[in-house]
Each structure stands twice: as C-alpha cells, then as structure tokens.
C-alpha cells in the first residue's frame, strides 16, 4: 500500500515537473509550456496526488492516513528531485508509460 501510494505520488509530481520550463524540455524536447498545458498538467498532477491518498486510507485510519500521505509527499518529491538530477531517462520512461497527463496534450492548442 505504501509503495503504491509512493509511486502514485512520484507520478503526480512528474506532471508538476513537466509543467516547469526546465523539465518541459526534458520531456517534450523543446519549447516551453503554454499556460493551458500547465493548468492541465497541474490538474492531472493533483488528481494523482489525491488518488494516492486512497491506498493510505485503505491501510490506516483517516487521521493516520493523512499524516502518512503527507510524509510520503515529502519522500516522493525528494525521490523525483534525485531522479531528475541523476537519472532523467527514468523520468522520461515513467512519463511515457505511466502518466495520464500526456494524453491531454494533443487536444491543447
């Protein structure tokens, strides 16, 4: 359960990373994020984070679940930071195979 939540959180944070100028380049090659794309990625990212709360709720009572979820947010953010620094290919892979945010991209101007 913890691992699942952590994976979902990392995936969610990838959306946020993709919406920043620096990592947009890593994921989309070139250009910079439009504000519509950014909003879309943020919405999807937040949804991932929210969904990550569900496995926590499964395993613990509500109060503990929220505490653990918040703690995992910290871990996930640091994990992604290190991945982006030392192993960006892995993030690219994850983006291609596990991130729903990319599905919306073609429909945005």
């Amino acid at each position: 359960m913890t691992a699942l939540a952590l994976i979902l959180i990392v995936l969610g944070f990838i959306h946020f990373a993709a919406s920043t100028r620096v990592f947009y380049k890593l994921i989309f090659g070139r250009g910079r994020p439009t504000s519509k794309l950014r909003n879309w990625l943020h919405v999807v990212g937040y949804m991932y984070l929210a969904v990550a709360l569900l496995p926590c709720l499964q395993a613990w009572n509500t109060q503990m679940a929220i505490v653990i979820w918040l703690g995992l947010l910290h871990v996930g953010a640091v994990v992604l930071t290190l991945l982006l620094t030392y192993w960006p290919e892995a993030v690219k892979r994850l983006w291609q195979f596990a991130c729903a945010g990319r599905l919306g991209k073609p429909f945005l101007p």
Binding site: F13, F16, A17, S19, T20, R21, V22, F23, A77, L80, T81, L82, L84, T85
Partner: peptide
C-alpha cells in the same frame, strides 16, 4: 515555488 521545485544542480 513551482518553477524550481524539483531542481537540483550539483
């Protein structure tokens, strides 16, 4: 805050 949220440049 988001702009360099995940940035680490060693």
């Amino acid at each position: 805050i988001f702009a360099d949220f995940f940035t680490f440049r060693p």
